[in-house]
Simulated assay, not measured.
Amino acid sequence: MGDKVIWGLSEKGKFSVKSAYYADLETKNQKTGETSNGDQNERLWRKVWRLTNSGKVKQFLWEALNGILPTRSILFKRRIIDNSTCPVCNREEETDIHVLWDCPASVDVCGEDCSPVRKWGRNYADFTTLWSNLQSKLEEGKLHIVAEVLYDLWKRRNDMVFEGKFKGPCVLIQQAVQEVETVNVDASMDSKRGKVGIGVVVRDFRGEVHVVVAAPIQVIEDIKAVVHAQPGWSVTFKGRDGNRGAHAVAKLALSLSTECVWMEEVPTEVLPAVVSDLPSFVMSV
Protein backbone atom coordinates (compact mmCIF):
# COMPACT_ATOMS: atom_id res chain seq x y z
CA MET A 1 0.00 0.00 0.00
CA GLY A 2 1.47 3.36 -1.04
CA ASP A 3 2.02 6.37 1.20
CA LYS A 4 -0.55 9.14 1.32
CA VAL A 5 -0.71 12.61 2.82
CA ILE A 6 -3.02 13.03 5.81
CA TRP A 7 -3.91 16.04 8.03
CA GLY A 8 -2.98 15.02 11.56
CA LEU A 9 -5.10 17.65 13.30
CA SER A 10 -8.50 16.19 12.39
CA GLU A 11 -10.13 12.81 13.17
CA LYS A 12 -10.60 11.87 9.51
CA GLY A 13 -7.17 13.04 8.41
CA LYS A 14 -8.61 15.66 6.07
CA PHE A 15 -7.71 19.33 6.16
CA SER A 16 -10.37 21.83 7.22
CA VAL A 17 -10.26 25.53 8.00
CA LYS A 18 -11.89 24.79 11.38
CA SER A 19 -9.14 22.39 12.45
CA ALA A 20 -6.44 24.81 11.29
CA TYR A 21 -8.08 27.64 13.26
CA TYR A 22 -8.15 25.63 16.49
CA ALA A 23 -4.56 24.51 15.95
CA ASP A 24 -3.47 28.12 15.56
CA LEU A 25 -5.51 29.14 18.63
CA GLU A 26 -3.89 26.41 20.73
CA THR A 27 -0.43 27.54 19.62
CA LYS A 28 -1.18 31.13 20.61
CA ASN A 29 -2.52 29.99 23.99
CA GLN A 30 0.67 28.05 24.61
CA LYS A 31 2.72 31.15 23.87
CA THR A 32 0.53 33.19 26.19
CA GLY A 33 1.03 30.67 29.00
CA GLU A 34 -1.40 29.63 31.70
CA THR A 35 -4.98 30.89 31.95
CA SER A 36 -3.99 33.42 34.60
CA ASN A 37 -1.60 35.03 32.12
CA GLY A 38 -4.33 35.13 29.51
CA ASP A 39 -6.67 36.83 31.97
CA GLN A 40 -3.91 39.28 32.86
CA ASN A 41 -3.45 40.22 29.20
CA GLU A 42 -7.20 40.71 28.82
CA ARG A 43 -7.23 43.06 31.82
CA LEU A 44 -4.27 44.96 30.39
CA TRP A 45 -6.03 45.60 27.08
CA ARG A 46 -9.31 46.48 28.80
CA LYS A 47 -7.55 49.21 30.77
CA VAL A 48 -5.80 50.53 27.66
CA TRP A 49 -9.06 50.99 25.76
CA ARG A 50 -10.70 52.61 28.81
CA LEU A 51 -8.07 55.34 29.01
CA THR A 52 -9.35 58.88 28.49
CA ASN A 53 -6.47 59.67 26.10
CA SER A 54 -7.08 60.36 22.42
CA GLY A 55 -7.35 57.61 19.85
CA LYS A 56 -3.87 58.32 18.46
CA VAL A 57 -2.33 57.71 21.90
CA LYS A 58 -4.21 54.42 22.30
CA GLN A 59 -3.12 53.36 18.81
CA PHE A 60 0.47 54.13 19.77
CA LEU A 61 0.14 52.02 22.94
CA TRP A 62 -1.34 49.17 20.92
CA GLU A 63 1.66 49.20 18.59
CA ALA A 64 4.14 49.43 21.47
CA LEU A 65 2.51 46.59 23.42
CA ASN A 66 2.44 44.39 20.32
CA GLY A 67 6.12 45.09 19.64
CA ILE A 68 5.56 46.66 16.23
CA LEU A 69 6.76 50.24 16.72
CA PRO A 70 9.16 50.85 13.80
CA THR A 71 12.22 51.29 15.99
CA ARG A 72 15.66 50.94 14.45
CA SER A 73 16.01 47.55 16.11
CA ILE A 74 12.91 46.27 14.26
CA LEU A 75 13.93 47.87 10.97
CA PHE A 76 17.45 46.44 11.27
CA LYS A 77 16.12 42.91 11.84
CA ARG A 78 13.96 43.28 8.74
CA ARG A 79 17.04 44.43 6.77
CA ILE A 80 15.46 47.78 5.97
CA ILE A 81 18.33 49.75 7.54
CA ASP A 82 21.90 48.78 8.39
CA ASN A 83 22.20 50.47 11.81
CA SER A 84 20.12 49.73 14.94
CA THR A 85 21.68 52.41 17.17
CA CYS A 86 19.36 54.92 18.85
CA PRO A 87 19.35 58.14 16.78
CA VAL A 88 18.82 60.26 19.90
CA CYS A 89 21.63 59.12 22.23
CA ASN A 90 23.81 57.23 19.68
CA ARG A 91 24.78 54.75 22.42
CA GLU A 92 22.45 51.76 22.64
CA GLU A 93 20.29 49.70 20.34
CA GLU A 94 16.97 51.46 19.74
CA THR A 95 14.32 49.07 21.08
CA ASP A 96 10.87 50.18 22.23
CA ILE A 97 11.83 50.08 25.93
CA HIS A 98 14.98 52.04 25.16
CA VAL A 99 13.42 54.92 23.24
CA LEU A 100 10.44 55.21 25.63
CA TRP A 101 12.15 54.60 28.97
CA ASP A 102 15.90 53.87 29.09
CA CYS A 103 17.33 56.44 26.68
CA PRO A 104 19.04 59.28 28.62
CA ALA A 105 16.82 61.78 26.78
CA SER A 106 13.71 59.92 27.96
CA VAL A 107 15.07 59.66 31.51
CA ASP A 108 15.43 63.46 31.57
CA VAL A 109 11.75 63.88 30.67
CA CYS A 110 10.47 61.37 33.22
CA GLY A 111 12.70 62.97 35.86
CA GLU A 112 10.97 66.35 35.67
CA ASP A 113 9.39 67.57 38.93
CA CYS A 114 5.79 67.16 37.78
CA SER A 115 6.32 63.69 36.30
CA PRO A 116 4.28 60.90 37.98
CA VAL A 117 7.22 58.49 37.43
CA ARG A 118 10.03 60.80 38.56
CA LYS A 119 11.52 58.29 41.03
CA TRP A 120 10.88 55.08 39.10
CA GLY A 121 13.72 52.70 38.25
CA ARG A 122 14.95 51.69 34.79
CA ASN A 123 15.13 47.91 35.16
CA TYR A 124 12.35 46.72 32.85
CA ALA A 125 12.99 43.97 30.32
CA ASP A 126 10.39 45.14 27.81
CA PHE A 127 7.65 47.71 27.31
CA THR A 128 4.80 45.33 28.19
CA THR A 129 6.32 44.68 31.63
CA LEU A 130 6.73 48.42 32.17
CA TRP A 131 3.18 49.25 31.10
CA SER A 132 1.69 46.48 33.28
CA ASN A 133 3.50 47.97 36.26
CA LEU A 134 2.31 51.47 35.40
CA GLN A 135 -1.30 50.28 35.19
CA SER A 136 -1.13 48.50 38.54
CA LYS A 137 0.51 51.35 40.49
CA LEU A 138 -0.78 54.63 39.02
CA GLU A 139 -4.19 56.19 39.48
CA GLU A 140 -6.18 57.05 36.36
CA GLY A 141 -5.14 60.70 36.13
CA LYS A 142 -1.43 59.94 36.42
CA LEU A 143 -1.67 57.02 33.97
CA HIS A 144 -3.26 59.43 31.49
CA ILE A 145 -0.26 61.77 31.86
CA VAL A 146 2.27 58.96 31.44
CA ALA A 147 0.51 57.70 28.30
CA GLU A 148 0.73 61.22 26.86
CA VAL A 149 4.42 61.45 27.80
CA LEU A 150 5.24 58.11 26.15
CA TYR A 151 3.41 59.13 22.98
CA ASP A 152 5.19 62.50 22.95
CA LEU A 153 8.57 60.78 23.43
CA TRP A 154 7.94 58.67 20.34
CA LYS A 155 6.69 61.68 18.39
CA ARG A 156 9.73 63.72 19.48
CA ARG A 157 12.00 60.94 18.28
CA ASN A 158 10.32 60.97 14.85
CA ASP A 159 10.42 64.77 14.66
CA MET A 160 14.16 64.65 15.29
CA VAL A 161 14.82 61.90 12.74
CA PHE A 162 12.69 63.30 9.93
CA GLU A 163 12.55 67.06 10.60
CA GLY A 164 15.58 67.79 12.77
CA LYS A 165 13.38 69.16 15.60
CA PHE A 166 13.85 68.29 19.26
CA LYS A 167 11.79 69.45 22.29
CA GLY A 168 13.45 69.78 25.69
CA PRO A 169 12.26 67.71 28.69
CA CYS A 170 10.46 70.59 30.43
CA VAL A 171 8.45 71.50 27.33
CA LEU A 172 7.49 67.90 26.64
CA ILE A 173 6.34 67.01 30.16
CA GLN A 174 4.36 70.24 30.52
CA GLN A 175 2.69 69.56 27.19
CA ALA A 176 1.55 66.15 28.44
CA VAL A 177 0.46 67.36 31.89
CA GLN A 178 -1.61 70.22 30.49
CA GLU A 179 -3.78 67.71 28.66
CA VAL A 180 -5.39 66.72 31.98
CA GLU A 181 -8.37 68.69 33.28
CA THR A 182 -10.99 67.74 35.87
CA VAL A 183 -14.62 68.85 35.69
CA ASN A 184 -16.67 68.70 38.90
CA VAL A 185 -20.46 68.90 38.64
CA ASP A 186 -23.03 69.04 41.43
CA ALA A 187 -26.69 70.02 41.83
CA SER A 188 -28.68 71.69 44.59
CA MET A 189 -32.46 71.85 45.06
CA ASP A 190 -34.72 74.31 46.85
CA SER A 191 -37.87 72.25 47.45
CA LYS A 192 -39.86 75.20 48.78
CA ARG A 193 -39.36 77.20 45.60
CA GLY A 194 -39.28 74.16 43.35
CA LYS A 195 -35.97 75.29 41.89
CA VAL A 196 -32.84 73.31 41.00
CA GLY A 197 -29.38 74.73 40.34
CA ILE A 198 -26.27 73.12 38.89
CA GLY A 199 -22.63 74.01 39.57
CA VAL A 200 -19.58 73.22 37.43
CA VAL A 201 -15.91 73.75 38.35
CA VAL A 202 -13.13 73.04 35.83
CA ARG A 203 -9.55 72.62 37.17
CA ASP A 204 -6.17 71.74 35.71
CA PHE A 205 -3.84 69.06 37.10
CA ARG A 206 -2.57 71.48 39.79
CA GLY A 207 -6.10 72.16 41.03
CA GLU A 208 -6.14 75.71 39.65
CA VAL A 209 -9.64 76.80 38.60
CA HIS A 210 -10.17 77.63 34.91
CA VAL A 211 -13.94 77.89 34.64
CA VAL A 212 -16.89 78.17 37.05
CA VAL A 213 -20.47 77.80 35.82
CA ALA A 214 -23.65 78.35 37.86
CA ALA A 215 -26.87 77.69 35.98
CA PRO A 216 -30.48 76.48 36.11
CA ILE A 217 -31.15 72.76 35.64
CA GLN A 218 -31.73 73.01 31.90
CA VAL A 219 -27.98 73.08 31.33
CA ILE A 220 -27.73 69.40 32.36
CA GLU A 221 -28.94 68.33 28.92
CA ASP A 222 -26.24 70.49 27.35
CA ILE A 223 -23.58 68.84 29.55
CA LYS A 224 -24.83 65.37 28.57
CA ALA A 225 -24.60 66.30 24.91
CA VAL A 226 -21.03 67.58 25.31
CA VAL A 227 -19.89 64.44 27.17
CA HIS A 228 -21.43 62.11 24.58
CA ALA A 229 -19.71 64.07 21.80
CA GLN A 230 -16.27 63.48 23.38
CA PRO A 231 -15.36 59.75 23.12
CA GLY A 232 -12.20 60.29 25.17
CA TRP A 233 -14.06 61.73 28.19
CA SER A 234 -15.24 59.67 31.14
CA VAL A 235 -17.64 60.34 34.02
CA THR A 236 -16.94 59.10 37.56
CA PHE A 237 -18.66 59.65 40.91
CA LYS A 238 -16.88 61.87 43.43
CA GLY A 239 -17.98 62.09 47.07
CA ARG A 240 -19.01 65.36 48.69
CA ASP A 241 -15.65 65.66 50.49
CA GLY A 242 -13.94 66.24 47.15
CA ASN A 243 -16.80 68.08 45.51
CA ARG A 244 -17.53 70.99 47.90
CA GLY A 245 -16.69 73.60 45.26
CA ALA A 246 -19.19 72.35 42.69
CA HIS A 247 -21.84 71.95 45.41
CA ALA A 248 -21.36 75.56 46.57
CA VAL A 249 -21.66 76.76 42.97
CA ALA A 250 -24.86 74.73 42.55
CA LYS A 251 -26.34 76.42 45.63
CA LEU A 252 -25.31 79.79 44.21
CA ALA A 253 -27.20 78.92 41.02
CA LEU A 254 -30.44 78.78 43.03
CA SER A 255 -30.24 82.56 43.45
CA LEU A 256 -29.66 83.21 39.75
CA SER A 257 -32.19 83.76 37.01
CA THR A 258 -29.82 82.82 34.20
CA GLU A 259 -26.54 81.00 33.56
CA CYS A 260 -23.36 82.73 34.80
CA VAL A 261 -19.80 81.85 33.78
CA TRP A 262 -16.53 82.98 35.42
CA MET A 263 -13.30 82.48 33.42
CA GLU A 264 -10.00 82.21 35.32
CA GLU A 265 -11.67 83.50 38.51
CA VAL A 266 -13.91 82.25 41.33
CA PRO A 267 -16.96 84.11 42.72
CA THR A 268 -16.36 85.21 46.31
CA GLU A 269 -19.50 83.40 47.52
CA VAL A 270 -17.96 79.99 46.75
CA LEU A 271 -14.25 80.71 47.14
CA PRO A 272 -13.82 79.01 50.59
CA ALA A 273 -15.42 75.78 49.33
CA VAL A 274 -13.36 75.76 46.12
CA VAL A 275 -10.14 76.27 48.09
CA SER A 276 -11.05 73.46 50.51
CA ASP A 277 -11.17 71.02 47.57
CA LEU A 278 -7.65 71.87 46.43
CA PRO A 279 -5.73 69.12 48.31
CA SER A 280 -7.74 66.39 46.58
CA PHE A 281 -6.85 67.75 43.12
CA VAL A 282 -3.14 68.32 43.47
CA MET A 283 -1.29 65.29 42.15
CA SER A 284 1.51 64.17 44.42
CA VAL A 285 4.73 63.33 42.61
Rank of each mutant, 00 (worst) to 15 (best):
D277L: 11
M189E: 12
K137I: 11
V266D: 13
V117N: 00
G121D: 07
N158E: 09
L51V: 01
L65R: 03
K137W: 01
K142V: 02
C110F: 03
M263W: 15
I173T: 00
S136C: 04
T27M: 12
R46T: 07
Y124I: 08
K18Y: 02
K18S: 03
L25V: 15
E11V: 13
L75G: 12
N29Y: 04
A248R: 08
C86L: 01
Y124D: 03
G207D: 10
E163Q: 15
I220S: 09
I6R: 08
A214L: 05
D24V: 11
M1Q: 10
V107I: 11
Q175Y: 10
N133Q: 08
E63Y: 13
V219K: 03
Q30N: 10
G141S: 08
V212P: 10
E92L: 08
N158R: 01
N158S: 05
G55R: 09
N66A: 06
K28Y: 06
G245C: 13
C89P: 00
H144K: 13
K238I: 15
A176D: 08
A250L: 09
L153I: 05
P272Q: 12
M283I: 14
I74N: 14
K251T: 11
L254R: 01
V275Y: 09
E269T: 06
S19T: 12
S276V: 08
F237G: 09
P216N: 06
A215I: 07
K165W: 00
L150T: 02
H210C: 09
A214C: 13
V200W: 04
V185H: 02
Q230M: 13
G168P: 05
R72S: 08
T182R: 11
M189W: 12
G38C: 01
G55A: 10
A105F: 02
V99A: 12
G55Y: 07
W49Y: 14
Q218W: 14
L278W: 13
C103W: 00
P87Y: 02
F60R: 01
T32L: 12
T35H: 10
K142N: 04
F281G: 01
V235H: 06
V180E: 05
S84V: 08
N158V: 05
L44I: 04
L256Q: 02
G67F: 02
F127M: 08
A253K: 00
G194L: 06
V183I: 15
V171W: 12
E269L: 05
C86T: 02
I80M: 13
E63Q: 15
T236C: 13
S257L: 13
V99Q: 07
V99E: 08
R91M: 11
V5A: 07
F166H: 10
A273H: 12
D277G: 10
Q175T: 14
D190I: 02
R72V: 08
K155S: 14
P272D: 15
V274Y: 07
P70M: 05
G207F: 10
Y151D: 06
E42N: 14
R43S: 11
P169K: 00
D186G: 07
E139D: 14
P116M: 03
G121T: 07
W131A: 00
I74L: 15
S191H: 12
V109T: 03
Q40H: 11
V146D: 05
L69Y: 08
S73M: 07
V266G: 13
P231W: 04
K155L: 14
N53W: 01
W262E: 06
